[in-house]
Write a protein that binds this DNA or RNA. Structure first.
Lengths: 243, 243
DNA sequence: CGCCTGGTTGATCGTGTTCAATGACTGTGG
DNA sequence: CCACAGTCATTGAACACGATCAACCAGGCG
């Protein structure tokens, strides 16, 4: 799914040492199969803010995210923007069976990718039915997530949207980078800026800021700097998000 | 994907005579394969307004829509509702590889379905790789459509939403039931009520009504009764929808 | 005829946007 | 070291779009 304008680093790799191997779509492959995949894989680092694939660019590659965050955006002609997907480590990037992407993929921070040539990759997909199955399931999950977000975009208030977002991030980060021991999420970094949160929630940056402040003043969350959030009261945050 | 509470009619069928065979997912099957599918297919008519599968119901079947319109909805605990998908003749209903549906499917009008037992269907999917591929591509298209709708829900004004909806319906109906000869769409029926349009666009019924009236007074569309729309000025409708 | 459902139209209200000023933090150069 | 610019976020005030509340209309049906 990568264009060709964004190479900053390129090296070959070994799947054995891969930190996301078991969680990513490659997890569906046998040792023999993964060696075949390994043969066509290359690593790349895409710096923050750089496009991974432009809207309507030809799709030349697929990729797995090894680290970092990628946003998928759609933009109206007058510049209004909507984030239609956020992808994290182990997520798959690419649109099989279509030449052109329907949206733009951008590195939110420095992103480390494991990329595959489109044609070779599709050939492997054809060869390994379990692999295609895994990609299919992956797509079904993304569809479910997109439809969840449609409910949020169409029917939730600003406060509910912001609460839902913080809750979603806390769940994504859960088990990945959260601190605070035991059962409940404690402290984590928001992966994106206020502007990006606004573009994700269909709000303005000011409204996002106000709602975050509101959650803070209600002692539901606490902030440390701009990015670090601590959830103080999970039940009330869930209540504020209305499911 | 059907529950068990909604049988009104049931008979066996022949795929040969099927009106949607070539457009539906079954189109990917060979003659031999389609006979196997035919063996597990049953027809049902679900009357208007009846649930085809409830939110979180166990998914017992998959289905193709032979005629009629199905809405997929998500509902918040307080009753706010969002339509997350509209399915027409030849569309596939069901969520492979998951026991439970994440949303409710309801018959918008009397719907004629060709249904398959879940277990038998999944067995066939495993047997016919081309079939799985077709379902996969279908899901990718639905994902693209869902993300298009996210842009509309998050970033478009009420007027743009209504114009986009009419344009979308005119395109869906194009080649199916449109009148008016030559190239451009002319007259067609809106498949859903104002309330449903509102739930689809994330608006209230009053706002939908006002925007429709507005497009009418601007001579961009004309109405015949409540459901029949004639598009008088396609370019201006497209302009009003902002892409 | 009255009732019911679905739709339109009007008046008012409130949430979220817009416009604008201020604050917090970072990196740069004198 | 501090001044300065630049980015990102917060906060305030005014406004506007769409929601809400309410009245009315049209068609279908007992």
């Amino acid at each position: 799914m990568l264009g060709m304008n964004d190479v900053t680093q390129q090296q070959s790799t070994r799947c054995d040492a891969c930190t996301v191997r078991h969680r990513a779509v490659c997890g569906a492959l046998s040792q023999k199969e993964i060696e075949r995949l390994n043969a066509i894989a290359r690593h790349r680092t895409v710096p923050q803010g750089q496009a991974i694939v432009g809207d309507q660019d030809r799709v030349l590659s697929f990729a797995n995210i090894i680290s970092g965050v990628v946003k998928l955006t759609k933009t109206l002609c007058d510049g209004r923007q909507q984030i239609v997907g956020l992808q994290f480590a182990s997520d798959f990037i690419g649109r099989p069976f279509r030449d052109r992407s329907a949206y733009e993929a951008t590195a939110v921070n420095d992103v480390h990718l494991c990329i595959y040539d489109r044609r070779q990759f599709e050939h492997l997909v054809r060869e390994f039915p379990g692999f295609e199955r895994r990609l299919f399931e992956n797509t079904l999950d993304e569809l479910d997530a997109a439809r969840d977000w449609m409910l949020l975009l169409g029917r939730k208030s600003a406060e509910e949207k912001v609460a839902s977002f913080i809750l979603m991030v806390s769940k994504k980060m859960d088990g990945v980078s959260r601190q605070g021991g035991d059962g409940r999420p404690a402290k984590f970094e928001l992966p994106i800026t206020r502007t990006e949160i606004a573009d994700f929630l269909g709000l303005t940056i000011e409204t996002v800021s106000r709602q975050v402040s509101r959650l803070k003043s209600e002692k539901i969350i606490a902030l440390e700097g701009l990015r670090t959030v601590a959830v103080l009261d999970v039940p009330r945050l869930e209540q504020a998000s209305s499911g």
